[in-house]
């Protein structure tokens, strides 16, 4: 079990017309591991994540979930496997309260087909409690009144509530101040401690070195390096991001790089 990553990508390629967005990318994350995904703009981080989430269909390669090849054709397939994505814009409805947002689209109904607010409120409190989110005063508060860090916490709690196994966080601290960033990083650490596989996309190496166990570097759609946090330093990672060795130089004819 410990040898099988919960999620593994083997030789995944994706192209949009003439543009190669991903080229034979290998990627894996274990349960309980916080895997940072870094790279410059246009490195293919978003495309990789969207392929996992079922928004893009991969052109080549395979995705393995718990050691088995899976085909993810849409966000619903990803959810069914236990893969949840928290996008940068969080996708919360400001006019709904915390509980309503956490259950949006998956509301519990009672025997008379009415919304079961009591059950939903209890479960929301339980999930927030498990994640030690203590900053939210009332779960019946409208999301409009929450701070950036609190919103991020709600979005994460919403993602992990459904027995998720893999949680993907897209730039969770990008828009936050110092104290809020701290809250969210603590939350990310706790997700890992609870046995979830966390994929963290970030530009902030400082944040990454604080919470990540491993770091995968993408450059121009290729996987150029993978580090253990304890065995590397920021300089080495920056080096990989900006000048990592490419197996295939974009723009050259296809035939040059067909090796597999």
């Amino acid at each position: 079990m410990s040898d099988t990553p919960i999620l593994e990508l083997r030789g995944v390629s994706k192209r949009f017309g003439a543009v190669v967005a991903l080229h034979e990318v290998d990627f894996h994350v274990d349960a309980g591991e916080v895997m940072a995904l870094v790279g410059d703009n246009g490195a293919g981080k978003s495309v990789l994540v969207k392929s996992i989430a079922g928004i893009h269909h991969i052109d080549a390669g395979e995705i393995l979930f718990e050691g088995e090849v899976v085909h993810i054709h849409g966000p619903k397939d990803a959810s069914r496997l236990g893969i949840e994505v928290v996008y940068q814009d969080l996708a919360l409805a400001d006019n709904l309260d915390v509980v309503q947002n956490m259950f949006l689209g998956r509301e519990e109904l009672d025997t008379l087909h009415r919304l079961d607010e009591i059950d939903m409120e209890s479960r929301a409190l339980e999930t927030l409690g498990d994640l030690s989110v203590t900053t939210i005063r009332s779960v019946r508060q409208k999301v409009a009144g929450l701070s950036g860090g609190q919103r991020q916490s709600v979005a994460v709690a919403k993602a992990v509530m459904w027995n998720s196994k893999v949680v993907i966080l897209d730039e969770p601290t990008a828009a936050l101040g110092v104290a809020q960033t701290r809250q969210v990083l603590e939350l990310v650490k706790r997700l890992g401690e609870q046995g979830l596989a966390v994929i963290l996309i970030s530009h902030n190496l400082h944040d990454i070195f604080e919470v990540a166990d491993s770091i995968t570097v993408l450059r121009l759609g290729q996987n150029v390096a993978e580090f253990k946090r304890t065995e590397t330093n920021q300089q080495e990672v920056v080096q990989a991001i900006t000048a990592g060795k490419l197996s295939h130089v974009p723009g050259q004819a296809e035939t040059h790089e067909v090796t597999a």
Binding site: P75, K76, Y87, D89, A91, L92, A93, D94, N95, L96, N101, L104, G105, R106
Partner: peptide, 11 residues
């Protein structure tokens, strides 16, 4: 409130 959030929630 947020049509995009609703869409992503599968509504």
């Amino acid at each position: 409130g947020n049509a995009e959030a609703a869409r992503r929630a599968g509504i």
